[in-house]
Protein backbone atom coordinates (compact mmCIF):
# COMPACT_ATOMS: atom_id res chain seq x y z
CA UNK A 1 0.00 0.00 0.00
CA UNK A 2 1.32 3.40 -0.93
CA UNK A 3 2.06 5.55 2.06
CA UNK A 4 0.22 8.76 2.64
CA UNK A 5 2.30 11.84 2.31
CA UNK A 6 0.19 14.56 3.83
CA UNK A 7 0.13 15.47 7.49
CA UNK A 8 -2.82 16.65 9.49
CA UNK A 9 -3.64 17.39 13.07
CA UNK A 10 -7.32 16.47 13.16
CA UNK A 11 -8.24 13.07 14.54
CA UNK A 12 -11.02 12.65 12.00
CA UNK A 13 -8.65 12.64 9.04
CA UNK A 14 -6.67 9.84 7.47
CA UNK A 15 -3.37 8.70 8.99
CA UNK A 16 -0.15 9.68 7.33
CA UNK A 17 2.68 7.19 7.46
CA UNK A 18 4.13 4.59 5.21
CA UNK A 19 3.57 0.89 5.78
CA UNK A 20 0.32 0.07 7.49
CA UNK A 21 -1.35 3.41 7.99
CA UNK A 22 -1.34 4.68 11.53
CA UNK A 23 -3.74 7.04 13.21
CA UNK A 24 -2.73 10.59 13.57
CA UNK A 25 -1.51 11.94 16.86
CA UNK A 26 -4.25 13.93 18.52
CA UNK A 27 -2.09 15.90 20.84
CA UNK A 28 0.24 17.31 18.24
CA UNK A 29 3.21 15.00 18.69
CA UNK A 30 4.44 13.76 15.33
CA UNK A 31 3.81 10.23 14.17
CA UNK A 32 7.01 8.35 13.50
CA UNK A 33 7.82 8.05 9.83
CA UNK A 34 8.22 4.74 8.10
CA UNK A 35 6.66 1.39 8.65
CA UNK A 36 6.84 -0.26 12.02
CA UNK A 37 10.01 -2.30 12.43
CA UNK A 38 9.80 -6.06 12.01
CA UNK A 39 9.45 -8.07 15.12
CA UNK A 40 10.76 -11.53 15.95
CA UNK A 41 8.28 -14.13 14.80
CA UNK A 42 6.31 -15.78 17.52
CA UNK A 43 5.94 -19.53 17.68
CA UNK A 44 2.38 -19.15 16.45
CA UNK A 45 3.45 -17.07 13.50
CA UNK A 46 6.12 -19.56 12.60
CA UNK A 47 3.58 -22.36 12.69
CA UNK A 48 1.25 -20.34 10.49
CA UNK A 49 4.02 -19.68 8.00
CA UNK A 50 4.99 -23.30 7.84
CA UNK A 51 1.38 -24.37 7.49
CA UNK A 52 1.29 -26.56 10.54
CA UNK A 53 -1.88 -25.00 11.93
CA UNK A 54 -5.08 -23.80 10.38
CA UNK A 55 -6.19 -20.24 10.71
CA UNK A 56 -9.48 -19.30 12.25
CA UNK A 57 -12.53 -19.57 10.10
CA UNK A 58 -11.87 -23.15 9.18
CA UNK A 59 -14.06 -24.77 11.79
CA UNK A 60 -11.33 -25.87 14.17
CA UNK A 61 -10.86 -25.03 17.80
CA UNK A 62 -8.67 -22.06 18.54
CA UNK A 63 -5.51 -22.51 20.56
CA UNK A 64 -6.19 -21.45 24.11
CA UNK A 65 -5.29 -17.86 24.88
CA UNK A 66 -4.92 -16.48 28.38
CA UNK A 67 -8.08 -16.39 30.46
CA UNK A 68 -9.22 -13.28 32.32
CA UNK A 69 -8.50 -13.07 36.02
CA UNK A 70 -9.71 -9.61 36.95
CA UNK A 71 -12.75 -9.36 39.21
CA UNK A 72 -15.54 -6.88 38.55
CA UNK A 73 -15.20 -3.50 40.26
CA UNK A 74 -17.97 -4.30 42.73
CA UNK A 75 -16.39 -7.61 43.76
CA UNK A 76 -14.85 -8.00 47.20
CA UNK A 77 -11.55 -8.83 45.52
CA UNK A 78 -10.35 -6.02 43.31
CA UNK A 79 -6.76 -7.08 42.74
CA UNK A 80 -5.46 -6.19 39.32
CA UNK A 81 -4.41 -9.06 37.08
CA UNK A 82 -0.77 -9.96 36.68
CA UNK A 83 0.38 -7.74 33.82
CA UNK A 84 2.50 -9.13 31.00
CA UNK A 85 3.52 -5.69 29.86
CA UNK A 86 2.77 -2.22 31.14
CA UNK A 87 -0.65 -1.74 32.69
CA UNK A 88 -2.55 1.41 31.81
CA UNK A 89 -5.57 2.28 33.91
CA UNK A 90 -7.89 5.21 34.47
CA UNK A 91 -7.82 6.42 30.87
CA UNK A 92 -10.85 6.50 28.64
CA UNK A 93 -10.89 5.69 24.94
CA UNK A 94 -11.23 9.02 23.18
CA UNK A 95 -11.12 7.81 19.59
CA UNK A 96 -10.70 4.71 17.49
CA UNK A 97 -9.12 4.18 14.13
CA UNK A 98 -9.12 1.48 11.49
CA UNK A 99 -8.56 1.31 7.76
CA UNK A 100 -8.52 -1.30 5.08
CA UNK A 101 -5.23 -2.97 5.98
CA UNK A 102 -5.51 -6.24 7.84
CA UNK A 103 -5.33 -6.07 11.65
CA UNK A 104 -4.64 -2.37 11.80
CA UNK A 105 -6.98 -1.03 14.45
CA UNK A 106 -6.00 1.58 17.02
CA UNK A 107 -7.48 3.18 20.09
CA UNK A 108 -6.67 6.61 21.49
CA UNK A 109 -6.29 6.61 25.28
CA UNK A 110 -6.99 9.94 26.92
CA UNK A 111 -3.43 10.42 28.16
CA UNK A 112 -1.33 7.71 26.55
CA UNK A 113 -2.49 8.59 23.03
CA UNK A 114 -2.75 6.24 20.07
CA UNK A 115 -2.13 2.61 20.83
CA UNK A 116 -2.35 -0.13 18.25
CA UNK A 117 -4.49 -3.09 19.22
CA UNK A 118 -2.77 -6.45 19.08
CA UNK A 119 -2.42 -7.70 15.52
CA UNK A 120 -1.62 -11.26 16.53
CA UNK A 121 -4.71 -12.75 14.88
CA UNK A 122 -7.73 -11.66 12.87
CA UNK A 123 -10.24 -12.40 15.61
CA UNK A 124 -7.99 -10.97 18.30
CA UNK A 125 -7.74 -7.68 16.44
CA UNK A 126 -11.48 -7.68 15.79
CA UNK A 127 -12.62 -8.48 19.31
CA UNK A 128 -10.26 -5.89 20.73
CA UNK A 129 -11.66 -3.37 18.28
CA UNK A 130 -15.17 -4.19 19.46
CA UNK A 131 -14.08 -3.82 23.06
CA UNK A 132 -12.31 -0.53 22.45
CA UNK A 133 -15.33 0.82 20.59
CA UNK A 134 -17.55 -0.34 23.42
CA UNK A 135 -15.34 1.40 25.97
CA UNK A 136 -15.50 4.58 23.91
CA UNK A 137 -19.27 4.37 23.60
CA UNK A 138 -19.81 3.82 27.30
CA UNK A 139 -17.06 6.10 28.60
CA UNK A 140 -15.67 3.24 30.65
CA UNK A 141 -11.96 3.44 31.44
CA UNK A 142 -10.56 0.06 30.39
CA UNK A 143 -7.76 -1.88 32.01
CA UNK A 144 -5.07 -2.04 29.34
CA UNK A 145 -1.93 -4.13 29.26
CA UNK A 146 0.55 -2.74 26.76
CA UNK A 147 2.97 -5.22 25.25
CA UNK A 148 6.68 -4.50 25.18
CA UNK A 149 6.18 -4.04 21.43
CA UNK A 150 3.89 -1.10 22.19
CA UNK A 151 0.62 -2.70 21.16
CA UNK A 152 -2.32 -3.36 23.45
CA UNK A 153 -2.22 -7.06 24.26
CA UNK A 154 -4.98 -7.24 26.85
CA UNK A 155 -8.18 -5.28 27.35
CA UNK A 156 -10.70 -5.41 30.15
CA UNK A 157 -13.77 -3.23 29.91
CA UNK A 158 -16.35 -2.98 32.70
Amino acid sequence: MAPKTTTRTNCTTQPQVSGDPQPEVLTGAPVADGPPPPHPLTDEELRLLTGTVQQSGTGVAAAAGPAPTMAPPQATTTDLPAAVGTPITGQTVVATYAEQSNRNAWAYLSTAGWKKLSDLTDTGSTTMTLLAAHARATGSAPYVDENPAGTIGTLYVW
Binding site: A64, G65, M70, S118, T121, G124, T127, M128, T151, V157
Partner: peptide, 27 residues
Protein backbone atom coordinates in the same frame (compact mmCIF):
# COMPACT_ATOMS: atom_id res chain seq x y z
CA UNK B 1 -17.53 -6.99 31.59
CA UNK B 2 -15.59 -7.87 28.48
CA UNK B 3 -12.06 -9.12 27.93
CA UNK B 4 -9.90 -9.84 24.95
CA UNK B 5 -6.33 -10.46 23.99
CA UNK B 6 -4.81 -10.66 20.56
CA UNK B 7 -5.06 -14.44 20.51
CA UNK B 8 -7.40 -16.24 18.16
CA UNK B 9 -11.00 -16.36 19.39
CA UNK B 10 -10.12 -15.23 22.88
CA UNK B 11 -12.98 -12.91 23.68
CA UNK B 12 -14.60 -13.35 27.08
CA UNK B 13 -17.55 -11.79 28.86
CA UNK B 14 -18.31 -11.55 32.54
CA UNK B 15 -21.95 -12.51 32.95
CA UNK B 16 -23.90 -11.68 36.10
CA UNK B 17 -23.94 -14.64 38.55
CA UNK B 18 -21.89 -16.71 36.09
CA UNK B 19 -18.50 -15.04 36.05
CA UNK B 20 -16.09 -15.09 33.14
CA UNK B 21 -17.32 -17.13 30.20
CA UNK B 22 -15.23 -17.71 27.12
CA UNK B 23 -17.03 -16.82 23.92
CA UNK B 24 -16.89 -19.87 21.69
CA UNK B 25 -17.25 -20.17 17.96
CA UNK B 26 -16.16 -22.89 15.59
CA UNK B 27 -15.10 -20.12 13.23
Amino acid sequence: GGYSTGHDRNGWVYVQDNGWLHVGGTT
